[in-house]
Nucleic acid binder design. Structure first.
Lengths: 332, 332
DNA sequence: AGCACCTTCTACAACGTTGTGAAGAGCAAT
DNA sequence: ATTGCTCTTCACAACGTTGTAGAAGGTGCT
């Protein structure tokens, strides 16, 4: 059906290898030959067979991006930016959803599928510290987020602790003293929730404000619904609070909805800050103050890092941390 | 590095073809041989080389999904559901972003990349009726949305006209008579904006309400910002309206934000309905009434259709329309 | 003229898999 | 014992590409 190098060669009257040389811009081809071949290519609409090329060369020019759930705005926007960054380097992106499921994440790392791509950007949520060894795989791998940490593996991460501290300090600077948290994961240390809580506590400590466990609103999933439920639970508990630090924007929007539905004014009664700087906080009612954790730069640097790792597997493992900033809007 | 059929064969003391037969569950393999081979596979951690398999068999078990922009919630949620539906059938999904750019959409259809996948789900926005011919490609293709229509190509679409009419009728049933539109594309007929406007007008006609062009709020892009701007423009124009039908949820949220910022109460002064039923309308303030256009079913049927097309290229072209429903919440 | 060296092109051998066809072993029916 | 089955295994040839090695032809230098 589709034309091959041989078909083009027959039409142009050269060997099929010469066609291959033209396609690959091999320099020593006579201009007249090159032109004849190019005409034959155009005439037949020849397109290289990427499976064959990949088999022969060992490269596919494709990478995988594994995220927990694409419908979460943070990951949708991350994927968007990863695809753009990859495209600039001639790579396509295959997306896998792991649904925060440890088993699926383990399967992914062992999958034959992985050998079809040149590298993997992996944002693990379900894996625990004991699973660290499984990230020692042959495929070039860049871990996103801070949950896992393996010294021999490339990482591109946000500064969870420092950024969460800055978010808390932002609320403190605006006079808030009873800052509730939405989205904590009780007992967790190494994940985003644990690290952000650590930043929150550091800011309180520095300001001499005692930590009050009753202000923690746990939420396993970071969806709108859970944010609303956590805020409702905080209000129902009777604990007094004048601000909410939600561990992502989606939680913040859910929480803000619940607060307003319960008659609390935002930001007058309760200031709200989120985390992630996703698009949906830009036009919420009120607009959402949030932390920009450098998502765009994460995407760019992650692709850059995996490309370097693909080019040379022996370079020293990289551990990149990107910058963050507070984006102030109406909710605080 | 990685083990091949030959390595396994050597270890198990059989020919490499026998290993291939075991891997592919060929029935006539003596149980004892099968077991020996399986042990060798496990010992070496053999994984088939998918490039080689794909070269030989002509199948990659991968499909592409081309969408305008993944960060738009509608497409993020569509992609999420396409990936899930594909996974149930053993397919992986490669995502391409076209940015509503006609040239990029044309490039995509002619790309060599396309021959690396078994099929393409394509949601075109930039292509026009004159481009219809370019969708006659060798790769199995399913078009999503209604912008293009080519009788010989599979389509899975939502019922834009009927659903938009139902949305308008919903507002009419609640006593609204001056219904503004946010997101119209002046002059467009065949795209989502044109079709949804057609449904809007049909509902007005049926109710005997004259169409008033001043109620149209154009918005080229369907982002929050444009929704807010369109609502501001409508208010600034001085035209009287008691409801807004936004052509997607993102526009609706932007418009709702602008309305509230300008002191209009939603839904008391202005009722708002969106379109798409994306997650972000569930916990907005107020929550957003919207049209569920059957996105989940679109994803499922699209994957199903492309799988059928891959299996047999000669079956009659399918044109699937999925159901829709009104999701009523606080904004109306 | 002879030699060395570029330029241009080609033949051949992989890459790792699956499909085809046939060979060998075992067994029942003749 | 021979024939004709079925079961099991294997050798071989693709799939379309790129890397290697080398042949053929031309050019410049001694």
């Amino acid at each position: 059906m589709a034309a091959t190098l041989h078909d083009v060669a027959r039409l142009a009257g050269v060997s099929f290898k010469t066609v291959s040389n033209v396609v690959n811009d091999y320099p020593h081809v006579r201009p007249s030959t090159r032109q004849r071949v190019q005409e034959a290519i155009a005439q037949l609409g020849y397109q290289p067979n990427l499976s064959a090329r990949s088999l022969r060369s060992g490269r596919s020019d494709a990478i995988s991006l594994a995220v927990p759930e694409l419908r979460l705005p943070y990951f949708a926007e991350l994927a968007d930016e990863v695809i753009r960054a990859a495209e600039r380097r001639g790579l396509v992106v295959l997306i896998e959803q792991t649904n925060r499921d440890r088993k699926r994440e383990l399967d992914l790392l062992g999958s034959a599928r992985l050998r079809m791509v040149d590298g993997l950007l992996f944002s693990p949520l379900g894996l625990t510290a004991e699973d660290a060894a499984v990230v020692e795989i042959d495929t070039p791998l860049v871990l996103l987020g801070e949950r896992l940490f393996h010294p021999a593996v490339d990482h591109v991460t946000m500064q969870n602790v420092a950024a969460a501290r800055a978010a808390t300090e932002h609320l403190l600077a605006r006079g808030r003293r009873r800052i509730a948290v939405v989205g904590s994961h009780p007992g967790e240390v190494i994940g985003s929730a644990g690290l952000r809580l650590q930043g929150y506590r550091a800011a309180l400590d520095a300001a001499g404000i005692p930590f009050d466990e009753r202000l923690l609103g746990p939420a396993e999933l970071w969806h709108r619904r859970e944010g609303a439920e956590a805020a409702q639970a905080l209000m129902a508990s009777g604990v007094d609070f004048d601000a909410v630090f939600a561990f992502n924007d989606t939680l913040a929007l859910g929480a803000m909805h619940a607060l307003i539905a319960a008659g609390r004014r935002v930001p007058d009664d309760v200031a709200v800050i989120g985390f992630d700087n996703t698009d949906d906080g830009m036009f919420s009612q009120p607009t959402l103050t949030t932390v920009d954790p450098g998502r765009r730069e994460i995407a760019e640097r992650a692709v850059e890092t995996v490309v370097q790792r693909i080019a040379d597997r022996n370079i020293a493992p990289q551990h990149v941390e990107v910058g963050y900033s507070i984006v102030q809007r109406e909710s605080s």
